[in-house]
Design a protein around this nucleic acid. Structure first.
Lengths: 154, 154
DNA sequence: CGGCGCCTTAACCTTAACGTTAGAGTATGA
DNA sequence: TCATACTCTAACGTTAAGGTTAAGGCGCCG
């Protein structure tokens, strides 16, 4: 069982995500995350699931090169599906729930397509780099030979 | 044999790269590319190798998420090696050439490491997406069942 | 030689994603 | 209760990567 009781304030969360508190507040501003609740003094309190969420956000941002606005789109679709399982369950008909799942499936499918495409291109890049590395290796050997034969003349 | 004689002006090159002329001039400003030469009137003239170069730049930018400044670094290292083979050959000793190749090899190796790492993470992402897709599929089947049984009651 | 489309430089504008600073409040150990 | 470290909001600053506009040359067709 995961420790779901570890609550933290913004500074600790920032440390764990390797980002700044400013960034966390910014993400909140644009609707990407939200604290679990606030202390009386106004301090934000987060649960561990926010950490996971941030990591997810960073993956979409860094690995797929998406803007935070784009990230927001897919995250919201995923959120809606999660909500189907929990407290918002009762407020929808099965028809509506079905529509939500279909919609989210579409989002995930297109996401998967992009990931696959990227994998393909990155793999091509890897091939090119390896080939280049081989050529450089040969060139290096050649030059080494030149240097050696010149040293022989001294 | 590749057609190495097809020269073009900035507009045509922009079209082929699917970018704007502004971007091409900007890339020139920051030292990423350079026209083959200029017409008397000042018009830039490019060869087909610039097209390849631009595509390379875009790959580093899009696939690896690098800034143009970072891109410039690796491109310059690669350029230096290319120069070893051509007209700047005579201006260096073999020792110096060897150093250039080693340096470039390092650049390419670290590039390869990054690509590999990215491939690994992207593949993890693909796995997660596929798993999610499966869960959504099951959820959808479940909901479909619900809807069907409710329709039966009408 | 006139017009049309493409090219030139230069200067200012835009947007995302934060960084930085200021001024004030909060939580907590000594 | 006080010092210290953390947090709050609000506002202005920054940077990369171009977009946009202006004011003017170039090349070539008819």
């Amino acid at each position: 069982m995961v420790d779901t009781t570890h609550e933290m304030q913004i500074g600790e969360l920032a440390q764990m995500c390797h980002i700044t508190t400013r960034t966390l507040r910014y993400y909140e501003d644009i609707g990407l995350i939200e604290p679990l609740r606030r202390l009386e003094g106004g301090f934000r309190v987060y649960g561990p699931e926010t950490l996971v969420r941030i990591q997810h956000i960073q993956e979409l941002k860094d690995l797929l090169g998406w803007s935070l606005e784009e990230v927001k789109g897919v995250i919201q679709a995923e959120d809606e599906v999660d909500n189907l399982r929990s407290r918002y369950r009762l407020s929808r008909t099965d028809q509506e729930r079905l529509a939500v799942v279909k919609q989210a499936t579409g989002v995930i499918e297109s996401q998967l397509a992009m990931v696959t495409e990227r994998l393909r291109r990155l793999d091509g890049m890897r091939g090119a780099l390896q080939a280049k590395l081989q050529r450089y290796g040969e060139l290096e050997a050649e030059l080494r030979e030149q240097v050696r034969s010149q040293e022989g003349k001294l």
